[in-house]
Each structure stands twice: as C-alpha cells, then as structure tokens.
Design a protein around this nucleic acid. Structure first.
Length: 816
RNA sequence: GCGGACGUGGCGAAACGGCAGACGCACCGGACUUAAAAUCCGGUUCCGGCAACGGAGUGAGGGUUCGACUCCCUCCGUCCGCACCA
C-alpha cells in the first residue's frame, strides 16, 4: 500500500486501503508466496512546518509523535507488516541516499538548474503552485501574485517521455483509467517545427504545429509573452513591456485563463512564409501562447483552427481556407464563425493541392526538410519536474553556491547534508535562510566562502524510491541491488487514484533514471496497481451553518435531527470524509466499540473496492452482528463437533452432502474472488456458507463432521479479513496451531460438483419453468423433459416447436 | 471543447450472453420477554390476484441473438480526468 503522510491520526480511508493490502498479503502468504508487506512514513511535508509556525511543536517532534500514534493504530488494526523494515523519510539514514541519487542525476544530465516563470507570493516569500493562486491572489496572504523568473532545480523527466508513454502498454495490471490519465498527461503530438525568417533580419521564428498541411493558410505568427524575442523587443517598446506585464499579472491558473480574453500585440516585425517568400505575415505577441509548450510560438491558420479564427476576426486578419470539406465547391467555400478542422482535400496550397490531410502532412514535412525550413517532430505536453521548494521541512538539496566556482555539488564524502534542527519559525520565509551558520560553508573546489542551497526537495522525491528501500531497509547504500532485484517490481500496489499523474508517474520516471545511473536493472516499479475508492460520509450542519461531527448529532423525541444544543440539523451531501466538513468518524472510537475486525470486515463487504463506500452506523452495526454470530456458531455449535482432524465419512445423508458441496464451492468461489479483487463478493460467499451451516439438520448421523468442516473453512477463508477473531475461532475449534500459518484451503472438485442440476426452460425467450435433472443429462433427454412441462405443452398447443436450443446443465430455449 | 467511467428494488449491491435482484442495510409481521434490547422464524422489485399464477421490469429508443443488465448504434443523465497544448 502507498505509505501515509503522518498527519496525526489514521483515518478510515487509510484503514480501507490497508485492510485491502493486508487481506492480499495474508491471502498470498497462505498460498505459499514469500510476501514482503512493509510500512513506512512519508514524513517530510508542509503540515509539520505549519504546525511549527503556529507554535505547536518542532516539525521533527510533531512528526515523530504522529508516527508513534499512527503506528499504534496500525498495530491495533492487526495489519501484518514487517516492522523491521519500517522507514521514515525524514531521517538522514533515508534521505542521504536520495542526495546521492541527485548527484548521480546531475552527473547524468538528468537534473539541471533552470530559470522558469513561477507564481510568487510577495508576502509569504515563497513560490505557490497554480492551485494555490485564486483570482490572481495568494490563497493565504491575499497578496497579488507576481510572475517571477526563478532559478529552480528540475529533473529531466522529459528525457523519458516516449519510454514512459510506450511502456504504459506493458502495465496490463494497471487500471485503464490511470494509464489513460498518464497518456494524456504526457500528451504526445506528432507535428513539425517550421522556421519563419524575419523580414529584414537574420533571425527566424521557429513554431511548432500539428497541422503543417495548413501552412498556406497562415495569416499571422504569435509569440508567447515569455518568448525570448518578445522579451528583447519589450526592451525598446514600452507599450509592449506594459502588455507583457499585464499578461503576467493574470497568472496561469486555468480559471484565469478560461476567463481571459484573447489579446494580441502587433509588433513591428513581419515574417516570411517559408514556402512562398513573396508572402509576409504579421508577428504578434499573444496572451494565449504558452512558452512551456512547443517552441513558445505558433503560426495562425484561421480557417482551420477555432482559436486562430477568433483571433483573426478580432484583428481583421485574412481567413484563407486550404482544406476543402468533402462535397464542397472550391470556388464557393468560405469559412464563417466556425473553423473547419476535419479531414478534406487540400486546395490553395500549391504542391499539396488534391491531397488528403494525412498525405499533405507527409508532403509538406518532406518539402520543409528539403528546404531546410523545418522538420517533422514530436511534441510532448509533459514538462520537466521542478523539485525546488522554499521550505524547511524537506530534504536539503546537496549543492553549494560559490561566488567563484558557481554551482558545486556537495562531494559524496560530505553526505548527508543534514537538515539542522536548531531553527526558528518566528520570521516568514525559509528558516534555512535565517539560520546563523548552516548555509555558510567553504567551497569544496576553491575552499573560499560559499553558501549552501537552502531550497529543499519536493516531498514527491522521497516517495519516488521508498519501495526500493523497503527491499533492504537497513542497507548502508540506498538499497541492496540483489534484494531489490529479487523483490521488485511491486507485484501489487494499492492506493488512491489521486496519485495517477503525481506519485505514480514520478516513481516510474525515477526507476528509469536509477536504471540509467546503474542502480538497478528495472524499468517499471509497479507491476500491478489497484486504486481503491474513497470513504464517504453524510455531512451535517445546524441552523447556524456550522458543520457537525456525526457523533454530535442526535434525534429528539419527535425523531428530528438536532445538535447538542437542540438546534435543528440538516443532512448535507455525501462527501469524502474531511476534517473541514467534520464528516469523520474517529477510528479509536470505532475500534473501542466494535473491535478492529468488525471495522475491517465492514470496509471490505459493503461496496466493490474500487468504488466509493459510504460509512454508515447501520452498516458497521450489521458487520458487528455478523462477527458476533460467527463467534456464537463456533463457541456454541448447533451439533456436537467431533475431535479436530478426524476423517469425514465418505457416504453421507443427501442433506449433509449438499452442505459439503456448498463448503467446497465456497472455497473455489472465494479464492477466485480474492484473485480478482472482488472482496465484497468474497464476503457475501462466506456469509452464504455460514447461512447454510445454520440450517444444519439436527439429529443426523455425522452432521458434526460436516459442520466442523464448514466452520473450519469459513474460519480459514475469513482469516485474512478479520485475523483476530479468526485465530480465536481456530483455537476454539480445537487447533493448537496459528491460523496465520495454515495453508489456504483447497476445494475438492468432486465434492463441489452438483449431482442434480436445475435447468431453466424458456419459450420464445420467456422463462416458463424449470426442470431438475441429473448433471450432464443427454440433450435429447433434456429436451424431452422440457417439452413435457405442462406450461410448455400449453403454449405449444400441440404444434411442433420451430427450434429447440439446449445449453447443457443450464437452459432449454424453445421457439414456438 | 477533448478523453474516460458509470446509470439495476427504499438503500449498498450480485449476475462466463443463459432462472435479474445473491449477500447485506432498512422496513413489515411473528416468537421469546412484564417490557425493551439482543436473538430466532417469516416476508419484502412493481402491478393484478386469497392463492396457484399472470403481466411489466436493469436511464430512454433502436439493433444483433433461440436468449441481452451484459454485445452494437443513437440519445438523456451523473461522476471523474485534462484543457488557450498550437
């Protein structure tokens, strides 16, 4: 399972995740697999630092106290982890290894420092993510966010764009949804780079396009405000500088972009059409062109791109169609308010005239390459991963800034660069910057005065390789290669879908980067992935619009919902459990009241594991009743049980044979369900078995043998789900061994096979009755029995059926 | 806008193309109890019928098939991801 951030307390969502993982681990172990089931702590992160700023505790203390509390909760739930492999990423014994990895990435050109445009909050003195900018203002400070060009460390994930995309096909045990999300995120587009020379200058503007076939329809060029050329033009053009500054003020969040009007600034430059030097097109700076994608410049073909069309209409630029829709007349076709973006036949396009879009792309690509004006290429949406954070509670980035030597990596012998613990949080900004001594060091090259990098790694850095550390958690190196190659890849990974393009993509990249640096021969970290649903709960609000905890809501005498002050309470939406909405249940309360097993069983039984689950008081009560019933069945059996281990007599009363059959069918069905992650079905099958055992006929010879087999089977099958009670049941049934060490039961196919089968009979597709026959009866016999049914005979009314289809042991379909 | 998933009783849900609603929640009736809780027994898709039984039914409409919750097409709805990506 994905390891948790030690936020303070385990919540029910965690428990659902870990219950599934524990079930899989225990089930596979019982099947004889060598199972590694580790647990650890993703221990760096913002909440710890915020707690420190609020004056509560030092991040290190806060984090280790949370770990202690949550470890206790995990143990109370009975999750079978190998605690000897426990890791916390905030320990130098852990993060020193990723500092070494970073140095290796630097050497391999997989890490680099680059200036990039970021959202800067001038009050908090830190970079903000796009999500943290609301209406152009910092979400906490309310200050207008500035765009700043800042030097940040990046990991070159784009070096693996094509590999990461192509290898998705090999991840056949991943949810389709997650693979699609990664595919879209990587965003591969085939197209071409085209160079437009600038009229009267030696320079050229390079654009990226997926539609080089529409090149003859070009009527303008547009550059991103951050394009180097735009920046240099702005130096001698104050209105342009103002235009660019205005674009920057708007920020880059999607909501802002959505609302922003498309605007352009006409530069004094014109570009020469690469295929027709006589034609010149105007060059604009436009607010909708992204510097981060393609080349930061586009050519506009209004007839065949809606956005370009809108821009052209606004600024009065020509609209020249070059792709003729099927069935249109070339002489009369004109573009109105809607650009034509589909396939058609090229026209107005010189050598491409008459070609399809696909053929024209090939033709123009070849021509551009021949002329040296461009080349076919592939663009990706994926951008390199910026890992610098202006935060204290993270792994120090192991580099030194020397005024003489520039950026100098910390020599390996000086690792780890330990995070100092004697810091203060009384000033805004990064405590590492204010620390009196920590950042001042001598340059490892020239020995002159220098300073440490005070940014720390994004915490996704730690979680990108922790699974490797688990394979040999106390190794002096990052991991023991042989151990890692024995265990990896992770056979079954379980976690939330929210990491589809974060942790799960970063880890895939990291594994490949480590391979390139010679750490391990491994491409993919996670062979099997399962994304479980969230745990939801009703929300409650009183008439003062205050959110209420479920346990603070009660019913008054008239059955209305009220809070503790008697104010009326309304039921809100079903939502993911969250502290802010207070729709949470306290795990310790649940375990105190019902026990860990009841909680585990409930989390497995009510919904399919990939779907969201609503937590209800009635639901947990229901599981508790079943847990109690199971114990009663074992501790007060309805029929006296023979001693454990005696053979079951081979000839049994038919009623007993039926129960044995159900027992063995249940083994087969539950095994299949667990293999396919259908945990809710597995629980239902076990309940069916126990229902059948409760109907055990009294006073029949050998009933005790059959009941014992049934109860032992139920105990073994349910063991991985609720291990505590299962061990008690196993002992109560007279065994001295640990159930956890018992092998998984095997179904006996001979005992599971039905002797009699019930066959449905349809007439004209409608069910009209059933017939009971011995298993595998001859088709003719089955047909005869079906036609002999009075209901069938009545419908046939003496006629011969037109057709009879017999599906052995299942159904007879009569066409009258 | 692009991509994807999902629509089944009052509710959570089951159903290799083969008896729709397993299992559970809730509810209704009964037993036990002075009473309640717990427990046990029975019922519970809808319509008609005392019943046997008949009819309808898996978001809507069409199609393929002896047979469709399941496969195909169109539409409606809900949810999720991405999105000025050139």
């Amino acid at each position: 399972e994905m390891f948790p951030y030690p936020s303070g307390k385990l919540h029910v969502g965690h428990v659902r995740n870990y219950t599934m993982g524990d079930l899989v681990a225990r089930y596979r172990r019982a099947q004889g697999f060598n199972v590694l089931h580790p647990m650890g702590w993703d221990a760096f992160g913002l909440p710890a630092e915020n707690a420190a700023i609020a004056g509560n505790a030092h991040p290190a203390t806060w984090t280790s106290e949370n770990i202690r509390a949550m470890r206790g909760q995990l143990q109370r739930m009975g999750f079978a982890y190998d605690w000897s492999r426990e890791i916390a990423t905030c320990h130098p014994e852990y993060y020193r290894h990723e500092q070494k990895m970073f140095l290796d990435f630097l050497a391999a050109d997989l890490a680099y420092r680059k200036e990039s445009w970021v959202n800067w909050d001038p009050v908090e003195n830190t970079v903000l993510a796009n999500e943290q900018v609301i209406d152009g203002r910092g979400w906490r400070s309310g200050a207008v966010v500035e765009k700043r060009l800042l030097a940040q460390w990046n990991l070159r994930i784009t070096a693996f764009s094509d590999e990461l995309l192509a290898a998705l096909k090999t991840l056949d045990r991943w949810p389709e949804r997650v693979r699609l999300m990664q595919e879209n995120w990587i965003g591969r587009s085939e197209g071409a780079r085209v160079r437009f020379p600038l009229a009267g200058h030696d320079e050229a503007i390079e654009v990226f396009t997926t539609r080089p076939d529409t090149l003859y329809g070009a009527s303008f060029l547009a550059l991103s405000p951050h394009h180097p050329l735009a920046q240099s033009l702005a130096a001698g053009d104050p209105p342009l500088a103002e235009f660019i500054a205005e674009c920057d003020r708007l920020g880059t969040s999607e909501a802002v972009i959505e609302a922003a009007e498309k605007r352009g600034y006409r530069t004094r430059l014109d570009a020469v059409h690469p295929l027709d030097p006589a034609r010149h097109v105007p060059v604009y700076i436009a607010n909708f062109v992204l510097m981060e994608y393609g080349t930061g410049a586009i050519f506009g073909c209004p007839a065949h791109d809606q956005r370009d069309l809108d821009f052209a209409r606004k600024y009065g630029l020509p609209v020249v169609p070059v792709v003729l829709p099927p069935g249109e007349d070339a002489a009369r076709f004109a573009v109105g308010d809607t650009a034509f973006v589909d396939d058609g036949t090229l026209f107005n396009s010189d050598f491409m005239n008459g070609l399809s879009v696909a053929d024209a792309k090939r033709a123009v690509g070849a021509r551009l390459e021949q002329l040296g004006h461009g080349e076919r290429t592939i663009a990706y949406r994926l951008r390199d991963w910026g890992v610098s954070r202006q935060r204290y509670w993270g792994c120090p980035i192991p580099v030194i800034h020397c005024p003489g030597c520039g950026i100098v990596p910390v020599p390996e012998r000086d690792l780890p660069v330990e995070l100092p613990l004697d810091v203060s949080f009384d000033r805004p900004g990064n405590p590492l910057d204010h620390h009196p001594t920590w950042k001042h060091v001598n340059c490892p090259v020239c020995n002159g005065p220098a300073t440490r990098e005070t940014d720390t790694f994004d915490t996704f850095f730690e979680s990108s390789w922790y699974f490797l550390r688990f394979c040999s958690a106390r190794a002096p190196t990052a991991f023991d290669r042989a151990a890692a190659e024995y265990w990896m890849p992770v056979d079954q990974y379980i976690g939330g879908v929210e990491h589809a393009v974060l942790h799960l993509l970063y880890s895939r990249f990291f594994t490949r980067a480590l391979k390139r640096c010679g750490y391990i021969d491994l491409d993919e970290p996670f062979a099997g992935l399962f994304t479980q649903g969230m745990v939801l709960h009703q929300t409650y609000q009183n008439d003062a619009d205050e959110w209420l905890f479920p346990k603070d809501v009660a019913e008054d005498e008239e059955g209305r919902l009220v809070d503790h002050a008697g104010r009326p309470v309304t039921i809100g939406r079903l939502e993911k459990m969250s502290k802010s909405k207070k729709n949470v249940v306290d795990l310790d309360d649940i375990v105190d009241t019902y026990g860990a097993d009841t909680a585990r069983l409930y989390l497995l039984s009510d919904s399919p594991p990939e779907r969201d689950l609503e937590w209800t008081a009635a639901g947990i009560d229901g599981s508790w009743r079943y847990v109690s019933r199971l114990w009663r069945m074992v501790s007060e059996p309805s029929v006296p049980l023979p001693t454990a281990g005696l053979p079951i007599p081979s000839s049994l009363e038919p009623a007993l044979a039926t129960i044995r059959r159900i027992t063995h069918k249940t083994i087969a069905a539950v095994t299949d369900d667990l293999d396919k992650f259908r945990f809710n079905r597995a629980v239902a099958r076990i309940r069916e078995l126990t229902n059948a055992l409760e109907d055990m006929p009294a006073g029949v010879r050998d009933a005790g043998h059959v009941l014992r087999e049934g109860l032992e089977t139920a105990t073994r099958l349910i063991g991985p789900m609720m291990p505590h009670l299962a061990e008690e049941m196993w002992r109560e049934l007279g065994h001295a061994t640990l159930l956890a060490d018992e092998p998984w039961p095997k179904a006996d196919p001979d005992l599971a096979r039905d002797e009699q089968v019930t066959i449905a009979v349809q007439v004209n597709g409608k069910l009209r009755g059933t017939i009971d026959l011995p298993r595998d009866a001859a088709n003719g016999e089955v047909e005869e029995a079906a036609l002999a049914l009075p209901q069938v005979a009545r419908l046939l009314d003496g006629r011969m059926p037109k057709k009879v289809v017999v599906v052995p042991n299942r159904i007879v379909s009569v066409v009258a």
